[in-house]
Design a protein around this nucleic acid. Sequence first.
DNA 1: GATGAATGAGCATTCATTCAT
DNA 2: AATGAATGAATGCTCATTCAT
Lengths: 206, 206, 206, 206
Amino acid sequence: MAERKREKRDPEQRRAEILAAAFACFAERGFAATRMEDVAARAGIAKGTVYLHFPDKERLFIDLVSGIASPILGEVGGMVEKDAIPARAAVAMFYSIFKREVLETERRHLLRLILAEGPMFPVVTEFYYREIITKGLAILRIVLARAAARGELRNPAVADVPQLVMAPALMSIVWATLFEGYEHLHAQKLFDTFLDTLFVPQGGAI
Amino acid sequence: MAERKREKRDPEQRRAEILAAAFACFAERGFAATRMEDVAARAGIAKGTVYLHFPDKERLFIDLVSGIASPILGEVGGMVEKDAIPARAAVAMFYSIFKREVLETERRHLLRLILAEGPMFPVVTEFYYREIITKGLAILRIVLARAAARGELRNPAVADVPQLVMAPALMSIVWATLFEGYEHLHAQKLFDTFLDTLFVPQGGAI
Amino acid sequence: MAERKREKRDPEQRRAEILAAAFACFAERGFAATRMEDVAARAGIAKGTVYLHFPDKERLFIDLVSGIASPILGEVGGMVEKDAIPARAAVAMFYSIFKREVLETERRHLLRLILAEGPMFPVVTEFYYREIITKGLAILRIVLARAAARGELRNPAVADVPQLVMAPALMSIVWATLFEGYEHLHAQKLFDTFLDTLFVPQGGAI
Amino acid sequence: MAERKREKRDPEQRRAEILAAAFACFAERGFAATRMEDVAARAGIAKGTVYLHFPDKERLFIDLVSGIASPILGEVGGMVEKDAIPARAAVAMFYSIFKREVLETERRHLLRLILAEGPMFPVVTEFYYREIITKGLAILRIVLARAAARGELRNPAVADVPQLVMAPALMSIVWATLFEGYEHLHAQKLFDTFLDTLFVPQGGAI
DNA sequence: GATGAATGAGCATTCATTCAT
DNA sequence: AATGAATGAATGCTCATTCAT
């Protein structure tokens, strides 16, 4: 009978649990097709309880999508600091962090959510542009400019189109989301092949 | 007010009008958030009329998403035939067709639809994998293999990961869909830069 | 190609065809669950054509239910005339006509229709009370009174409750409609047993 | 205006209220013509609340029609036990219970419902055949066989067609449902007259 | 007359949100 | 705080009826 009813909790923890449940639901079915009751059930609480932490479904979504991104940035930022390391290593690390933190995480569903619900939630799109894209591109721009200056790039013009470097990452997510079930895409190979294409060989010889 | 009521039409034309309206609506708001009445209104017809052409919302969506892709394939396929032309030109043509037929068309919203609704409509995902991705990759694989054999690729390993060539196209759509309002991405420049990175310079000079 | 389209017909015949189709449909599914299109399809005509003969669904139903009963009465009425024949024979004939004209005909579904839709169509109920019940009871009353006077009834009080004589007929229809599939009810035996109960044995023997 | 809003209730009681309201509605207008909103309104609750207790309209109907019959059976069954009492008294009790429990109750509308919706709900028909008809006939068969053996029946053959005994009950309901407004039928008289016809007089004289 | 595409009111059902407990 | 029954607006779909052909 000890059905852990009316379990009280640290509000912050409760909030986090709801966000986690909400993310799983939204990622699975999209915003419109997710029922608040699904979220509650997944969080192991009652429907009404969700409303004690979020005023409505829309706000739950926005808080969720915004909050989930923040942690990613930190590490990536460090990349730019180290002037010493070769650009190729920096970009490789970029992919590596992306792989570890996004592609191989539940966060890989984020893109789908943002892309899918973007038009309905401009706030979210803007948030991502401002907080993630802008910062990511800025970092890449710096790293690529440095690489170009050092002659590490086969095509220095790449430094002007840092989106090109993001493209394989994007592809890896989209593929993982849609087609992984039909055919496996080896993300690391995709990244490495791109790195080999982007950068002049490091000639360990002589 | 030209109320054009009870306008009869060629069934095929009517069907096409509905599909066009539906595409606009679905692209704008997603499957769940689109009301059949919206579609009808956009097509300038009554709610019930939609059901004379499609049995239900789901089928309207599937027929729509499936039908809209078909026309794309034809032209791309021709690319592979011409053995004579340089690989770079072939890939450039691939991007060009993509730009003309998808990126600069309403079809650019397709990716969003597929990505967003994929999990709810596995039929659609499978259709796209089978009809578009598989065929597109096959073509690229042939072209790239040929290029590798001819020494046209800076990194011949690219021939094994044709998804790499698709990545910039993907990026161009995602950017156009989400961030174009905040910052312009010059798709042609993206493609050209990538081509310059991918292929060894043709050195017309000396 | 000779798809007998836009077949013109004698209006009366067309009307009759529609009524027949409508009866089949209404009997099968009831008023509300019958679609005008079903009726049209069953009559082998287009939806709109029904409306050339009946102003609306309700009127189709009323005309139908009213019209289908009329033919029954005639023969029964004759029963009362023949003063000479024994009451038992007259009542037997009543059941016989009922069996032949109603129970073993599609008309057996009439009761269901009237009972089911009665509250929604008081006109129909009233019509049946006035045209069928009243007349049928009147005839039975005369026959039974005569029988009582002649000492043919085991219980002369039956002459005051002619509904009692109708009851087995009612039972035969209800049973045929609902339970015949589970267990057979031999209507003739039901009637004969009732006749044997109702009337004093005729004892042809000394 | 005592708007008694958001009144919470014992679930069982709520369910019973809905069933009662549903019965009234279905009895009045039939299955198809009854709107769930009517049911809700009649139960004094909101539309959605009905769905907290029944998954859909069909199930509401089936549960309703099935549930309403159960209570009838009990008492009737006792009839057969008492071997001592004369068959006539037993059958008289049968009619009496029927009158009290069905004819003079809202349950008298049940026949209409079953007859009307039978073809659309075979489950219901089968339920009634199995639970009511079969059992009722079995009891009558026993009582009548006993009566025949004791020479209480004017026509012993009646014991083979127990439906004959049910017929007056059926007539009383159908009449009450359809024609009572036009002409009164004295049910007790109908039953008594039938009993007097069925059984040999009990000779209270001497 | 005959047709059947078009219309839109109508209804079953869902689900975000509220609130009495 | 937590619950979940209750609410009612919203939406997919149907079908009686109309009307251009």
